[in-house]
Computed example of a mutant assay.
Amino acid sequence: MNPQDPDPEYRSPRCVLGEHPHCRDAEPRDSGVPGVRHLLCACPCHHGAPLFTAALMTTWAAAALACLARVAPHLS
């Protein structure tokens, strides 16, 4: 790999598993080894983008079903 090439997009294992608050790869840090650096996590959770977690999707689905239950009797 050419040192001038950009790094491929990297997502930390913690973000891949949904453990976003525990990700340590969002900020640059020193590896302690000359010429070796840590990759930065490119997960949207570090950039202020909303994430669709299972809890959020479950909440959204429950709200949608409740809304549909209220509206359905008036559709006939």
Rank of each mutant, 00 (worst) to 15 (best):
M1T: 13
P3Y: 14
P3T: 08
Q4P: 11
P6T: 11
P6M: 07
D7N: 15
P8T: 03
P8H: 05
P8C: 00
E9K: 03
R11V: 12
R11C: 10
S12I: 03
S12C: 15
S12Y: 01
S12F: 02
P13K: 09
P13N: 13
P13S: 12
C15M: 01
C15P: 01
L17K: 13
L17T: 10
L17A: 13
G18R: 06
G18S: 05
H20E: 10
H20A: 06
H20C: 15
H22L: 12
C23K: 04
C23N: 01
C23A: 07
R24L: 14
D25W: 03
D25R: 07
D25K: 04
E27N: 12
E27M: 11
P28I: 05
D30I: 10
S31H: 05
V33W: 06
V33C: 04
G35W: 06
V36H: 05
V36A: 07
V36S: 01
R37Y: 14
R37K: 13
R37N: 08
H38W: 14
L40N: 02
C43N: 00
C43I: 00
C43H: 00
P44D: 03
C45P: 00
H46G: 04
H47I: 06
P50H: 04
T53D: 01
A54S: 10
A55L: 03
A55R: 06
M57S: 01
T58Y: 01
T58A: 11
A61K: 04
A62R: 09
L65Q: 11
L65R: 10
C67G: 14
C67K: 14
L68G: 05
A69G: 12
A69E: 15
A69K: 14
A69Q: 13
R70H: 15
V71N: 03
L75G: 01
S76H: 09
